[in-house]
Nucleic acid binder design. Structure first.
Lengths: 336, 336
DNA sequence: GGATTACATCGAAGCGCTTCGCTTCGAAGT
DNA sequence: ACTTCGAAGCGAAGCGCTTCGATGTAATCC
């Protein structure tokens, strides 16, 4: 193994000088710097991460904590994860992947053992068990998702309330007057995941602002569940022409079911979804949608964490504005 | 921060004794061990990972390396990742997530800086650039996927050749005589990803064994691409009754297209897929399928890596036998 | 021109842990 | 009773790095 002493010897300087060249924490003459950098390159030197962590009290690693409950939408999580890694690398940090299968103890462990300098928690619920644990952890952290009490925390999320409103506005602008929200499975509401409820309240607020009836229903993401939900919906509200869908896994079945019922999209029913863009684009017709900005969220989360690691204060709550992309699944309602 | 010295003092022993209690590398009397363990618990001691890595030359971390090309099937990758983390924890290791966006340099870095003791590479291609880099890396590794030359490596994968054969056998057993393989997008074959080609050769071998015609076609995973492929297929081979689909993203569109063409599944066309189980089960009708055993693969990969870390030799190539689950999408061909 | 300042570099301490070799002690063997 | 031996625990070295204070040297000031 090549050590800093080897590099120093090779460049004819003291080890500390090499260290300062690498960290830039003290002024070094251009000549010396060049010599050291050449030595580093020639010897293929990589500082020993453990030694560095020990001496500097900084591991240059952040933890990415996934919850391990079922019903998560894996592709979105993966996209997050990839973005977090990529962004962290831009700040010269690596990412340790932690799941909650050891429960909260895992957080304790990676933080207390100084493996990581800070943490990013994905998919935080309204009453997430990890949040209290986090509070007494002394390491900075950023949450993706919004728990009930955000004091002292740093949270990032899509503004789901605005997203719900935005969907309604889109449909109303097209002329729809009978609009329903097809939401997450009941279990998600019971768990008080936050974003489901926030979307719903945004939906309701917008609909009522326009003097329309607020129709919302949870929806299982199985084929049969979707069929049942949609059937009931149209039985109860036969003149429904607009659907807002906030349930990634239900979208495919839902479109199938609509077709099966002979209700054509967008001629007879307009559908606007809250889901990743790629999902919306793959459908036929492509779906009008508000995208889940996994990339932006991940990037923002890491950037905020880095700021905290540098000792800067941050906002408690950062909500990203929703962007709606109109595609082929929405149109004015057919004149009746 | 609580150090080993604090624990030692609290338990009335030397630091080295605490270390030996924790590692179990030397005999310690039951009484002392109990006292030390109590002290550890009371003080909430967690060994400093960096210090430990420095002194012991072991980081107790493995790298999980994802390729960053497009067209990967994210949910499967995520499932892998989760399994790898969970399994690694069982061996008291953590997982560093590495993407190939720094190219091969990222591997160099995490290995040379002693951040990780070994690596698991996901989704390895036939001519993967990471493989040569790996060879000169001195750290043990396990590949998921099979490159062209496996000498000196440890590879794990589904036996795609057998999977292709298995699908054919299933359809033939039901009585089908006209069977086509709908494969991955052309780009995947061009990249020589290995598994696509292996499935194809298994398919061809099995089909020819039964004296049938070998019909295979790549397939884009867009809606339009699938429509085009399927249309051409049935135009060229009108009496086709069996389809083997090895393209996760194409399955949904394909089923839609078949329905759109008025070809009912399984009454008129039987479809067997190679895809994750959950995907097969969510469809209506549920798909007969050979599953991608992400969980088993991940587990096997980590287990093999741990064995290598302990200095044991391992097989160059471990292929998991495919398991086919018959569901609602396959049936005997209708008597013509 | 001597004192002052800034700049560039060095040396050594120490981060928290593991590990090697040593000491001590009591039990077993002869 | 004396050696022998294994078990249990201790002490100190050292892993590779960062960082602080010190030192040497050259530029700057009145």
């Amino acid at each position: 193994m090549v050590t800093i002493a080897d590099v120093a010897r090779h460049a004819g300087v003291a080890p500390s000088t090499v260290s300062y060249v690498l960290s830039g924490k003290r002024a070094i003459s251009a000549a010396t710097r060049a010599r050291v950098q050449a030595a580093v390159r020639e010897l293929g030197y990589h500082p020993h991460a453990g030694a560095r962590a020990l001496a500097s009290n900084r591991a240059n690693v952040i933890a990415l904590v996934l919850p391990l409950r079922s019903g998560m939408h894996l592709p979105v999580l993966m996209q997050f994860a990839i973005t977090v890694v990529t962004t962290a690398r831009q700040y010269d940090h690596d990412v340790l992947l932690v799941t909650s299968d050891e429960g909260v103890a895992g957080l304790q462990r990676v933080a207390a053992s100084a493996m990581v300098d800070g943490l990013v928690l994905m998919d935080v619920e309204l009453h997430d068990v990890r949040v209290p644990a986090l509070r007494k952890l002394d390491r900075p952290s950023v949450l993706i998702g919004v728990p009930a009490d955000t004091t002292g925390l740093t949270c990032v999320d899509l503004d789901f309330m605005a997203a719900g409103e935005r969907c309604v506005e889109h449909l109303v602008a097209l002329g729809h007057r009978h609009i329903a929200l097809v939401g997450a499975p009941p279990a998600v509401y019971e768990r008080e995941t936050g974003f489901a409820e926030r979307t719903r309240s945004g939906f309701i607020a917008a609909v009522q602002r326009h003097g329309l009836q607020a129709i919302t229903t949870p929806c299982e993401d199985t084929y049969e569940g979707v069929r049942a939900t949609v059937t009931e919906l149209f039985a109860a509200y036969p003149n429904l022409t607009g659907l807002v869908v906030h349930n990634e896994a239900a979208i495919d079945p839902l479109m199938d079911v609509l077709r099966g019922m002979g209700r054509r999209v967008p001629e007879e029913v307009s559908v606007v979804a809250i889901c990743p863009d790629e999902m919306a684009e793959r459908r036929s017709p492509p779906l009008s949608s508000v995208l889940i900005p996994a990339h932006e969220l991940g990037q923002e989360a890491v950037t905020l964490l880095m700021r905290k690691l540098d000792g800067h204060p941050t906002e408690e709550l950062t909500l990203l504005a929703p962007r709606l992309t109109a595609r082929g699944s929405t149109a004015p309602p057919s004149a009746v």
